[in-house]
């Protein structure tokens, strides 16, 4: 399946869509650019390496990755709330957090790169299917949320956080959920796709930068709610097609 160019295009679009939705959701709800997403992704890939090299059940490894990364998200949120008073400060804190996580991984893993292609049960086909399921689940959850009464509050927070707070919306709670859920999703993505490349502490930066550019471009359309995230997916597909044709 992965051998055909079209399949590769679809796979890379799905991968980038998950990353871009996470970056965008965090930015719109939590109101800071979470640069620690790069290390969340890396963290998931390293946990996949641990799981496979220690012959741990893949499902247990997956659940542990999800829970541990959610915990890391909680720690980041606590630090940001305690120290970061505005967008720039919170972003700088997330950058520090990202570097700290990466360096802990680098120090504890003296070998530069790790390859788990032969050990991984995630064949290219399984990887594609799991990534597609992950993307569809995210979109479904977002669609349900935005259709519910919570969605109105989320849209309000996206539009104007200050005004939302005046009208009694607990924006901090939404920010908390946005940080931990995006952290967990990206670690999961790192876990699933870990067999497709050599694992090193800086693998998360490349997709993060691309996702920031895609999210930034999508924000020009000034959409809110679910339609914004659908546009993110569409733009990611266009971006992947253009890159494929150019390169």
């Amino acid at each position: 399946m992965i051998a055909t160019p079209i399949a590769y295009l679809i796979y890379s679009s799905i991968f980038l869509s998950i990353f871009s939705i996470s970056v965008s959701l965090n930015f719109r709800i939590s109101k800071f650019l979470n640069l620690a997403h790069a290390s969340a992704y890396t963290f998931g890939a390293y946990l996949a390496y641990y799981t496979l090299s220690n012959n741990i059940n893949i499902l247990i490894g997956y659940i542990v990755t999800f829970l541990l990364s959610a915990c890391l998200g909680v720690v980041l949120f606590a630090v940001v709330i305690k120290l970061g008073k505005n967008l720039l400060q919170a972003t700088i804190i997330s950058l520090g957090y990202s570097i700290a996580l990466e360096e802990v991984l680098r120090i504890t893993h003296p070998t530069g790169y790790y390859l788990i292609i032969s050990q991984s049960p995630f064949t290219p086909e399984i990887r594609e299917i799991l990534s597609a399921i992950l993307l569809l689940s995210i979109l479904l959850i977002l669609a349900i949320l935005y259709k519910s009464s919570v969605g109105i509050k989320m849209k309000f927070t996206e539009d104007d956080r200050f005004l939302a707070e005046i009208y009694g919306v607990n924006t901090e709670r939404f920010a908390f959920y946005a940080v931990i859920s995006t952290f967990a999703v990206l670690s999961t993505l790192g876990f699933i796709t870990s067999s497709s490349y050599a694992i090193s502490p800086t693998i998360g930066w490349n997709p993060l930068v691309t996702s920031i550019l895609i999210s930034g471009f999508t924000s020009l359309f000034r959409l809110t709610g679910f339609s914004h995230f659908v546009t993110v997916v569409l733009i990611t597909f266009i971006y992947s097609t253009v890159m494929y044709l150019v390169i």
Partner: peptide
């Protein structure tokens, strides 16, 4: 560096 960045504010 990371600790200084986190504590920068």
């Amino acid at each position: 560096y990371a600790i200084i960045l986190i504590l920068s504010p």
